[in-house]
Amino acid sequence: MTLLPTRAELDAAATIVYGAMPATPQFSWPLLNEALGTDAWVKHENHTPTGAFKVRGGLVYLAGLLKREPGVSGIISATRGNHGQSLAFAARRHGVKVTIVVPHGNSVEKNAAMRGLGADLIEFGDDFQASREYALSLARKQGLHMVPSYHQDLVAGVASYWMELFHAQPALDTVFVPIGMGSGFAAAIAAREALGLRTRVIGVVSSHAPAYLESFRSGELREAPATTELADGMACRTPDRESLEVVRRYADDVIEVSDEEVARAIRLYYRATHNLAEGAGAAALAAALRLKHDARVAGCRVGLPLTGANVDAEKIMRVLSEVLP
């Protein structure tokens, strides 16, 4: 059985996080509320040092790893970008060598950001799963520590932003959480359970990468193609078994949003808040817009994590050039 971090573990993780960054803000934006027809609070994880929520998990994971394995020679992991940036950011603080494997065609600017943080970047495979398998093989050959996409320390670190939001707005009725490999979703659940809240937690996947949705509905792990062109942070082909257990046990629901809906949410975020959101970063808003007439949104107080802003300039210019309906 997968265990969630305890309140004590969440508090200890938060201390590590705040040694490297401040809490991020949450705002309720009038034009966004108008579009949704209800009160929404946006948690601005686009304001972290790496522009995404993942940095919190990387900080806590590296701190724990160095206690468990003080002589670690280096770390390696696979990513579409934000997980890799978080590890590179944390590893640089500790002087640890980091290697990151990304699939071919990965975000040019996320690749540049990882290199800028000191990561040795390798491009391999056509999707995240292929990159992950190659990273595992390199870890064995080179004696590197393979950082997983899902781990208790990652969850505990990421949960610090949910604790911030729930402390600031404890009366939220529903929150939407994008699902990539599941650490963000598990973090929301861990914070909710630690605080004893009754807030609905709804997972969000890309309709072009529905593995977690199909697994949630079927009750067993299902693979599915990941073909999203906009929400690369949710481009999962094979769910993580531990995080899937959390989703299946605790999710009030899991819904899907298309690239078109995500693009519409990106445009709305910019028009209503003048914040840029990457595809996965806007998925929670896309889901809330889809359910705006549903009882879980209409008349409710809604929490929307803007989980990241790391989108290539060329891609964001194409998205923003479309007319907002």
Rank of each mutant, 00 (worst) to 15 (best):
L136V: 12
A190S: 14
V204Q: 12
S243P: 05
A263E: 14
A298K: 15
S73I: 09
E34H: 13
R248V: 08
H94A: 13
T15I: 10
A280N: 03
E322L: 13
A91M: 07
R140W: 03
L65Y: 04
A282P: 02
M317D: 10
T50V: 13
S206K: 05
R249W: 00
E242H: 12
L66T: 03
A283M: 14
F27D: 12
I122F: 07
I202L: 11
D11S: 14
L285S: 11
A119M: 10
G58Q: 09
C300M: 15
H293N: 15
G299R: 02
P5V: 04
D240H: 14
P25K: 04
R115V: 15
Q129Y: 12
A263F: 02
E109P: 05
A35F: 00
A186Y: 09
W162N: 14
V108G: 01
G105M: 06
N82R: 07
A171M: 08
R56S: 05
R237S: 12
K67N: 13
N310A: 07
V155W: 00
E69K: 13
D127E: 09
H104M: 09
P178A: 12
G105I: 06
P103M: 10
V319N: 09
A112D: 11
A119G: 11
N82I: 02
A171C: 03
V147K: 01
N275Y: 12
A168M: 10
A226V: 09
E133Q: 15
S243M: 04
